[in-house]
């Protein structure tokens, strides 16, 4: 086995070159380059963590804004509803008063019309009696040649109207 046969011949050079190489790796890379590499990794991790935190904050902000918008929407909707209700009520009362006024006017006109109708009817009846009495007087005079006074004829006609 060369490792044993050559041991005494090579151990010094083996150790010298090995220690040289290990020293370069330990001090040059281990102490020199690795801290820089780890710093880069640390910066990246910090950046990622910061970005994640910012994104999380933005998300909560967006959620809050959405919540606010939703609340404002609900409030506006409520206001609109009450506004509509008020307007409806106002419109209803307005139309009611107008209807009532129109109703009253119509009633008054109806009453006046009825009154004038009754008046006209009474007048018509009155003139009818007079005409009937005159006609009865003339009929009696022509038929029986008897003389009836206007008063008699009128009372007779009145009696007939009252019965008829």
């Amino acid at each position: 086995m060369p490792q044993i046969n050559q041991l005494l011949l090579v151990y010094q050079s083996q150790w010298f070159w090995l220690l040289l190489v290990l020293a370069v790796i330990y001090f040059g890379i281990g102490k020199g380059m690795i801290p820089k590499i780890e710093q880069t990794v640390g910066q990246r991790d910090a950046r990622i963590a910061g970005d994640l935190a910012a994104a999380e904050k933005a998300r909560t902000d967006a959620n809050e804004a959405e919540e606010r918008a939703r609340a404002a929407d609900v409030r506006a909707r409520g206001e609109a509803q009450s506004f509509i209700a008020q307007a409806k009520a106002r419109a209803a009362t307005a139309s009611e008063t107008r209807l009532a006024a129109a109703d009253a006017e119509i009633g008054a006109r109806l009453a006046a019309a009825e009154a004038s109708l009754a008046d006209a009817r009474a007048k018509a009846l009155d003139s009818l009696e007079t005409v009937a009495a005159e006609a009865a007087q003339e009929i009696v005079a022509k038929v029986s040649d008897a003389k009836v006074t206007a008063a008699q004829a009128a009372s007779a006609v009145k009696a007939v109207f009252a019965n008829g």
Partner: peptide, 29 residues
């Protein structure tokens, strides 16, 4: 696994002999 001096000299147990082993340590480095 044989180690030999690369500069043509013989192995003499001295620390600064440049061997094939030393060469490959430097290649690894």
């Amino acid at each position: 696994f044989q180690i030999g001096a690369l500069n043509g000299g013989a192995l003499d147990g001295a620390p600064f002999v440049f061997t094939n082993s030393a060469l490959w340590m430097l290649i690894v480095l």
